[in-house]
């Protein structure tokens, strides 16, 4: 192939390929919005696709982890291209909020969600919730052998028998709840026991898979990984059952996913519209009918009937804005977990 033809081909491909997303971006300067999405990509897409369909507002998503995107927003500051930030857990929202990045959420939107599922300052809002579970190998553990409290897993008897994904934001949210309820000393001791007893995995789904294949007897994860896999092939969860700690145990913690509009957004109207959509009936119905299996948090919104109702979980009551992610990261580093 000659240089000319190669160069021509490259130029053509450049125009074709690079212009598509670029158009979405520059076109977005007039009406489209950029969402930094730390929620599962699939759920993020379900929401934004439905939103675009309903409103005609195009959405560009940037995928990342809770803490990565929160820190990224802080680093970008006022120059951030993001309009909306969606997370899996509330600590990242608190972090961005404390950096003063959020604009107040529209009053009407706030009213769509009960006060328990949003911070008192109203600068972000709960969009979904997930419950902490102990996913266990039902061929190895009978119900009487299950831990009564998440704190019991620090017992040396559990050495090498359970796992978690300590580097993930999900687990760190659970730890922040524990910190809030049990205090620093007890939490640090528990983390050190975790370092000694538990097998670290890269993600919740991988930890569940390890339970399923018999590598470990149980793992601390969120509930929806199990439901999601069951809904597909069950290939990674057929040997797994879920244990809810209940009794206001730190292990019964229900984590709140949040959404917020960036103060620096050039399209605050469209950004607010997305939050209103997600917390509204259409958005919450996606949680009920979609593939995410997360809990709906809207007033009068129903969750998927397959789930254990939120009200039956006996979760501890924790103000989401009190969850301290920086402290947790520090303590986990001190325990040698990250």
């Amino acid at each position: 192939m000659s240089v000319h033809r190669l160069a021509g081909l490259a130029a053509f491909a450049l125009l074709l390929g690079l212009s598509a997303p670029a158009a979405a971006q520059t076109g977005g300067a007039s009406e489209g919005i950029v969402v930094y999405n730390a929620q599962h990509e699939s759920l993020g897409r379900e929401w934004t696709d439905a939103f675009t369909k309903a409103t005609g507002i195009p959405v560009t998503m940037r995928q990342g982890g809770d803490m990565q995107l929160a820190n990224q927003l802080i680093a970008e500051g006022a120059a951030s291209p993001a309009d909306v930030f969606l997370t899996e857990n509330s600590p990242a929202m608190t972090l961005a909020d404390s950096a003063g990045l959020f604009a107040p959420v529209d009053k009407a939107t706030l009213d769509q969600v009960p006060a328990a599922f949003r911070p008192s300052d109203g600068r972000w809002i709960g969009i979904a919730a997930r419950a902490t579970v102990f996913a266990y190998d039902k061929t190895k553990l009978s119900e009487d052998k299950l831990p009564k409290s998440i704190m019991d897993l620090a017992d040396p008897a559990w050495k090498g028998r359970w796992g978690a994904a300590p580097a993930g934001a999900d687990f760190q949210a659970i730890v922040s709840a524990m910190l809030d309820m049990k205090g620093e000393e007890a939490t640090l001791a528990w983390l050190k026991a975790l370092k000694a007893n538990a097998l670290p995995y890269k993600g919740n789904s991988i930890a569940m898979k390890a339970v399923n294949v018999g590598e470990i007897e149980g793992a601390i994860i969120y509930h929806y990984y199990w439901f999601g896999d069951q809904a597909k092939t069950g290939e990674n969860s057929n040997n797994v059952a879920l244990h809810y700690f209940r009794h206001q145990d730190p292990g019964a913690f229900v984590s709140l996913s949040g959404g917020g509009v960036l103060k620096s957004s050039q399209h605050p109207k469209e950004a607010q519209a997305l939050l209103a959509f997600i917390t509204g009936k259409a958005g919450q119905d996606i949680l009920k009918n979609g593939t995410s299996y997360e809990y709906a948090v809207g007033k009068d919104a129903a969750s998927n009937p397959k789930l254990v109702p939120l009200s039956d979980l006996q979760a501890p009551t924790i103000d989401p804005s009190r969850l301290n992610s920086r402290k947790v990261t520090e303590m986990m580093t001190a325990a040698g977990l990250i």
């Binding site: 490259a10 491909a13 450049l14 074709l16 390929g17 690079l18 598509a20 997303p21």
Partner: peptide
Amino acid sequence: VTFAQTMALALAGGA
């Protein structure tokens, strides 16, 4: 779409 995007990036980067 991803394939086209990858090819575009790859050829541009290559050039």
